[in-house]
Amino acid sequence: MVSQETPAKRSTAKIQVRGLNFYYGPRQALYDISLGIAEKKITALIGPSGCGKSTFLRTLNRMHELVRQARAEGQLLLDGEDIMSMDVTRLRRRVGMVFQKSNPFPKTIFENVAYGLRVNGYPKGRPLADLVEASLKRAALWDEVKDSLHKSAYALSGGQQQRLCIARALAVNPEVLLLDEPCSALDPIATAKIEELLFALRESCTIVIVTHNMQQAARVADYTGFFLMGRLVEFDETKVVFTRPRRRETEDYITGRFG
C-alpha cells in the first residue's frame, strides 16, 4: 500500500481516506485511494477525464449512492467519524457540494439560497432573510442581486448562477465544500471571480476542487492530487507537484505530454 498521507498530517486532516476502492457494477473505477484532506486549505484534484477524480469527490458526501450499482469500499472519516455509516442528510449538511453545471432550482434567488436552511432547519432568533443575505455576501453575489432577490434564478448569467449555487451550499454553513469542475462552463472573468471567492472561503471552510484546468489548480490550491486511471498517482503540496513531481506520469501530464 502506498502511503499518500504525507502532506496533510493526521492531526490536521479534516477528511481521512484509507484504502478506498470503488466499483460501478463489475467495473472498478478507483483503486486503493488513501489521502488526507487538510482542514481550511484548498485541495485540488487533477487528471485526465475519466480518471476517477469526480467519482472520488462524490464519495466524500456519498452522492455516488444515486448511481445504481455504484459501490464504495474502504474507510472514509470526517473528523474521525465514519462517513459511510453517518446519517446521510447530516453528512451532506456538513459536506456541501457545487456541481460542474450550475443547477439553480426553478425558484427565486432568495428561495434558492433559503432551500438548504428550510430543509435542515436554521437557528432560532435569526430571520431567514439575514442568513440568506449573509450567504450571498460570502459568495460575493449580494451586490449584484440584492434588488432582484425575488426574481427567478434563471435570469442570472452563467457565472452568477454558479456563485448562487455556491451561496446556496454555504447557507447551511458546511465544514467542507466540494466543487466538481465549477468553472468548466464559465468564461475567464467569471472564473476569476470564483477563484477569488475560493481564496476568501478558505478562512472558514475546507475546500476540495476537481478541475481539468491545471493552471487553476496551480493558482488556487494548497495541495494537489493527480489521478490517473483510477489511481492516486501523486499527492503533495501544489508547488511540489508542479515543480518537482516525483512520478514520471505526473510530469508528463502537467507538461502536457498526454491527457
Binding site: L66, R92, M97, F105, Y115, R118, V119, N120, R168, A169
Partner: peptide, 22 residues
C-alpha cells in the same frame, strides 16, 4: 434535469423531500 435532484440532495434534503420540494 437530474442536476436539480443532485442539488437538493447535496444540500442535505432527503429523497422524498427533494422530490416534493424541487
Amino acid at each position: 434535469p437530474q442536476s436539480l435532484r443532485e442539488g437538493a440532495l447535496a444540500l442535505g434534503a432527503s429523497k422524498s423531500r427533494a422530490i416534493a420540494t424541487v
